[in-house]
Design a protein around this nucleic acid. Structure first.
Lengths: 245, 245
DNA sequence: GTATGATTAAAACGAACGTTTGAACTGCGG
DNA sequence: CCGCAGTTCAAACGTTCGTTTTAATCATAC
């Protein structure tokens, strides 16, 4: 009983081992860049094991996501349920909605013990993946949570058009995705970055709330603080064609 | 002289045709997912043409980026030079810095006539790409612009710690990347989205400025408006391990 | 007209890919 | 002990990958 650590355990944990390894490798090399042989080799299982347990490589990718997203989105809904119950029908504060939506994400992202961090980086990269089968099951995994939370945001921000809310939700998801998937990418921005990553969550939340509550843009609210054309000279519409003609 | 349209022109435009097609295909299928045969086939050139003109597939990918990024970052620096000259040594307004940094990006992103839109989607996806050779040349392409603009931001926001500025720059780049690379991804958020995409730029700029000027988070400025823990119950640190044990 | 250097063309290279096959092995109820 | 799912295994399948090779074609200068 002393030497049965790791490698060739016979138990039914082959499935889980594949999922754990695939999560890491998909994060590091992307879907196309990760081969079945690399996954199975690193997991210490036979090459055919993936096809046996999951059917196909695409199905494995989907399984990696489902395992985490199901937990994440269920938690989001539970938090929202709790807050709405406590509010007794009154609209929530914008900060509460953000907390409910992004709190679980950030918690999972900073959890390095159980692979949550790895997965969140993968999720961030995958949002922008254009592959058809990916977009499809992502939409399915998220539809409930998005509709519940966009509704909560709409009631938290009365007077703000729904279109604007959806855009800002989109912007916020982008900022969060980058913040998570690119603690490396930040080095691209700043060389080396010697700041505690645990401090990212409050920084990010503050940034998001500021963006969410920013004045509406000019063409919707004519008295917004930020005139987008204030540099002069039409910076927003230079003629990129001229440089190539 | 009537029928020499398109296809097999003999001129030295083989290089450009490859670049144009590769830009589109890399955007649609990613680096690993795009084969040389697809690129050369769609460009109407011989398979060996890529290796002849660029040497390798990685070098082609890099060339696609350099062609656009060189123009983009040069324009960013020109705008910044102009603004700083006009300011005569005085700090710029935050809105000006944002305008200079993201204005050219948004202009290129909404330019559908010369492929700028396609490229910006590719750029957004590639920021988070973990492949080593990609990260390396991206860092090189951006180093000048980042250092100039982070410095301008630092002077535009006196009293804000440099670390905070770098983080917010990072958040903003994330929001912009998503906004651009995922006009499709927004459909993931909201089903179908029947709003004019041309209105995105002012919306985004307003959001960014709101986030940039948000109050500093609690643990840096103790009197920030947004207490990140205001939901109670420790939403920011649930124990994800418990559900898997 | 012919030599020359740059480009294009067709074909093939070995390697790696996702998947399938059919046999071996496992733990267990009969 | 046998039979039988469930699972693992080694080997091979056919395809596609990026790259290389060798010959043909082109434009241009002498």
């Amino acid at each position: 009983m002393a030497t049965l650590t790791g490698e060739s355990r016979s138990g039914g944990d082959t499935r889980e081992r594949i999922l754990d390894v695939a999560e890491v490798l998909f994060t590091e090399h992307g879907f196309e860049g990760t081969s079945m042989r690399l996954i199975t080799g690193q997991a210490g299982v036979n090459l055919a094991a993936v096809n046996y347990h999951f059917g196909t490589k695409e199905a494995l990718f989907q399984a990696v996501f489902h395992r985490r997203l199901y937990q994440l989105n269920r938690m989001r809904l539970e938090v929202l349920d709790g807050m709405e119950l406590e509010a007794q029908g009154a609209p929530l504060k914008p900060s509460q909605v953000l907390e409910g939506f992004f709190g679980p994400v950030l918690a999972m992202a900073t959890d390095t013990r159980h692979g949550g961090h790895t997965f969140m980086r993968l999720l961030g990269r995958t949002y922008t993946e254009p592959a058809q089968f990916i977009r499809k099951f992502m939409a399915e995994e998220f539809s409930d949570v998005i509709s519940r939370y966009s509704d909560a945001l709409r009631r938290a921000l009365p007077g703000v058009p729904l279109a604007e809310i959806m855009w800002r939700l989109h912007f916020m998801m982008g900022a969060v995705s980058y913040a998570i998937s690119g603690i490396d990418a930040l080095q691209l921005v700043s060389g080396r970055f010697d700041d505690d990553p645990a401090l990212m969550a409050p920084r990010l939340m503050s940034f998001l709330l500021g963006g969410l509550r920013a004045p509406l843009p000019e063409m919707i609210s004519p008295h917004a603080q930020f005139p987008t054309g204030d540099v002069g000279g039409g910076v927003l519409t230079p003629d990129f064609g001229a440089a190539r003609a």
